[in-house]
Design a protein around this nucleic acid. Structure first.
Lengths: 231, 231
DNA sequence: CAAGAGAGCGAACAGTCGTTCACCGAGTGA
DNA sequence: TCACTCGGTGAACGACTGTTCGCTCTCTTG
């Protein structure tokens, strides 16, 4: 349910990807999308223990059960595959979070539900998020840029939400962006913490989730008591 | 002045490093430490554009002007070299920050000075901090653990400081740790932001520094207005 | 001063790598 | 039905990888 759909046309049609050419119907292109997905899955599986830049093209095709030369029918290089994985990993979260943001809810409830949804989504897609956490500051510039762009979109959406709240009186868009970036960063760091020490240890998971909520509340309390009467 | 001293005995004597054997004096071991340092510098230079796990042993020795076989006189593998680099990068910051923490200063002043010192230290040691930012969630487990241990030490020190403040009444050590982790994470993310979009663009740098200060203040205000009258 | 220790070297090892090429055969459109 | 498009194949390419070995030559120790 919360799992990332791995063969959506949305993913395939995104950006200037080499594969996923014009025709969207037919057995031909369906097969192509399938092997493209096989490559993405194989890469993701291998990256549970290593990073994108240490991945080999042959390694990926071997894991996928495909000839090395066939790789080039889908991606120009591994960096391009990485960008596609970013889309697949973070693209699916937008609608997911959009459902949470009921406009008249208490901030406390929104935070709690956001954390719950994110944790569930991470649990259902561990390799995807491990990839994002690892490559956010990783060695491949194109992938870093793609992740930053996705996070910026999340921040934009959060800013729009915050603007609608009465507590935002006296805050301009720039200040709200600073606040939103802090929220998003807290959540991303929580995800990273969960991934490398939390998921199979229920006690640790509870601790990490509780810590995330406390930190989000800390920021929220700071926001509510922010001195808006500045010159 | 703020530059990381690259040939201190402290670094060499740390941990169970293969190189840096027992004798601390003599021309012999001095030469050894020098080439060890050459290896560390070469690796750091190469990692400005790539990550540790994509680094090759021969690549490093070539950059250092040393035969590949000589590498093993100093490190068992590149992961061990990475751990040594973590020590060199973050070990030097402890004393640096210790100087800031004058016990009777205003929180606002402490934050401002901390940010200034960190930014200056980052500017003076760009490759070191790029390495830390990249490998904090990178693909080499030993390096990740070493960085986490160093950050934990920073958090410990910060908790001790916070304990001494009158504003911490009603906070137990666990809660203070949550707060301290948030502070440290904000600073680490600021460092990462500076590194990949700030350092050569003065306007961006100013924006990032200002954002960091705002976020730190946000957390501090939240701390001051935290509801301590919980059951 | 002689014997030993050890840092660094050069060569060789068996693999793996990314990329290219001509070619096959199944799905496609007239 | 027939020509054609195109995803996938297998072989081959030169280059590069981590690791080992015995050797040299300098510093260290008795």
């Amino acid at each position: 349910m919360a799992e990332i759909e791995t063969s959506s046309t949305e993913t395939a049609a995104a950006g200037t990807v080499i594969g996923a050419s014009v025709p969207l119907t037919g057995v031909r292109s369906a097969k192509k999308l399938a092997t493209r997905q096989t490559l993405l899955d194989a890469a993701l599986r291998l990256m549970e223990q290593q990073s994108l830049s240490s991945l080999g093209l042959r390694e990926v095709t071997r894991e996928a059960g495909i000839a090395p030369a066939a790789f080039y029918r889908h991606f120009a290089d591994l960096g391009e595959l990485g960008v596609a994985l970013v889309e697949e990993s973070l693209g699916s979260m937008h609608e997911l979070i959009r459902d949470i943001r009921t406009p008249d809810a208490e901030t406390e409830d929104v935070m709690r539900r956001t954390v719950d949804v994110v944790v569930a989504h991470v649990r259902a897609n561990v390799p995807h998020f491990r990839f994002v956490a690892r490559e956010r500051h990783g060695g491949v510039a194109a992938v870093r840029a793609a992740i930053a762009a996705q996070l910026d979109t999340f921040i934009d959406e959060l800013v729009e939400d915050l603007k609608l709240q009465p507590e935002s009186e006296g805050w301009d868009s720039q200040e709200l962006r600073v606040l939103a970036r802090l929220y998003v960063n807290v959540i991303m760091l929580t995800v990273a913490d969960l991934l490398d020490s939390g998921l199979e240890n229920p006690l640790e998971e509870a601790r990490i989730v509780a810590e995330a909520l406390t930190q989000l509340r800390l920021v929220t309390v700071g926001r509510l008591h922010w001195p808006t009467d500045r010159p």
